[in-house]
């Protein structure tokens, strides 16, 4: 980049564009390398069934990651999503086993609604309780989980109690694409679009980028934060329905520990933990990468222990990459400014 053409649009735009692309491109590259390596070792990794399994496994995580990404972009975090998934899954499974005639769409709507209410609780506590989101959602994570336990007791809803159309939803296709995958694509795509092209989305970025400036700019910070938490809750609620349909067996421990997978997917996907930057589809890619890693390790017959270590390393790598990029931008901009 020539530093002498200060202020001329072309280099700046190229610079910014290139920067945006690097993060998501990095994930895609990692995916390609990983898949290629695994496929050379075991060509069945590329079989239709294997790809299908990977996508199905990604779907639930990706839906939750899309919601989480919005929250993280506003410089917050939602740790309650695993518990919200459990509430939604148990509610919907109980409802469907009691009323086998209900259509799938009702299950989906109820699941989303349950999650949205949980998200509303989180959002209101964070905004009006003036408590950091980390603390609020850590609290509600336990509270929601406790609610499911006290409601479910030791019992679980088994696959044989659920109507066939509900269970088959997880395996049914439309135009050759499994419903689950389609739903994940729609959610990730829709939320991406909202965050990229609509005012509310850009305001979410603004809030995460500088909360004080957002208040001064007259942005409705309270409303936007609550919307972000509702979105994350609703996504977790939807994920609960998909979980119940896919696994058929739901008990109070459903989705335990998912919150960390979701946060990992978001961070690995390039959303900055301090808010303000990253993309929702990047978070979706992050979910895909984490899923592919775990199945690739299984195919390569590597100890599952390594999976955890690798995910951990990826998170640290992602955060280091953020720092590195930030430092590099700062340096190159300083150089440009030095020419003024």
């Amino acid at each position: 980049m020539t530093t002498s053409t200060l202020g001329a649009p072309a280099p700046g735009r190229r610079f910014a564009g290139g920067l945006l692309k690097t993060r998501e491109l990095g994930i895609v590259l990692a995916l390609v390398v990983l898949i290629a390596y695994t496929a050379i070792d075991n060509p069945r990794f590329l079989s239709g069934q294997s790809i299908r399994d990977n996508l199905l496994n990604t779907a639930i995580l990706a839906v939750m990651a899309a919601g989480q990404a919005v929250v993280v972009i506003t410089r917050n975090i939602d740790l309650s999503v695993g518990s919200v998934l459990a509430i939604s899954a148990f509610t919907v499974a109980t409802m469907m086993s009691d009323n086998p005639g209900l259509p799938m769409i009702v299950a989906i709507v109820v699941g989303i609604a349950v999650g949205a209410v949980a998200g509303l609780v989180n959002g209101v506590l964070v905004r009006y309780g003036k408590v950091p989101a980390l603390v609020v959602t850590l609290g509600t994570m336990y509270i929601f989980r406790g609610l499911v336990y006290s409601w479910a007791g030791g019992q679980q809803v088994n696959a044989d109690e659920l109507p066939a159309h509900f269970l088959s939803f997880a395996n049914d296709n439309i135009l050759g694409i499994p419903w689950l995958v389609l739903i994940a694509l729609v959610v990730v795509g829709g939320v991406s679009l909202m965050m990229r092209n609509y005012r509310i989305g850009r305001e979410m970025y603004a809030i995460g980028s500088s909360p004080d400036a957002a208040e001064l700019a007259g942005i409705k910070v309270a409303r936007n934060l609550i919307v972000a938490f509702i979105l994350s809750g609703a996504a977790a609620g939807l994920a609960g329905v998909l979980f119940a349909a896919r696994f058929g067996t739901v008990d109070a421990s459903a989705g335990t520990g998912y919150e960390l997978n979701v946060v990992a997917a978001v961070v690995v996907g390039g959303v900055a933990v301090f808010g303000g930057s990253g993309t929702v589809w990047g978070a979706g890619l992050g979910a895909l990468l984490l899923t592919v890693i775990s199945s690739a390790l299984a195919v390569l017959d590597i100890n599952q222990f390594w999976q955890q270590a690798i995910v951990g390393s990826l998170i640290i790598l992602a955060i280091c990459a953020d720092r590195l990029v930030a430092v590099r931008i700062a340096r190159s901009l300083r150089k440009r400014d030095a020419h003024v």
Partner: peptide, 25 residues
């Protein structure tokens, strides 16, 4: 009081961005 992560154009337009017919920015 700018938003460091947003572009200069977005900083200027924030809250008042020109919209297309679909209410997109």
């Amino acid at each position: 009081t700018l938003f460091p992560d947003l572009s200069v154009a977005e900083n200027i337009a924030i809250g008042n961005q020109p919209l297309t017919r679909l209410r997109q920015i």
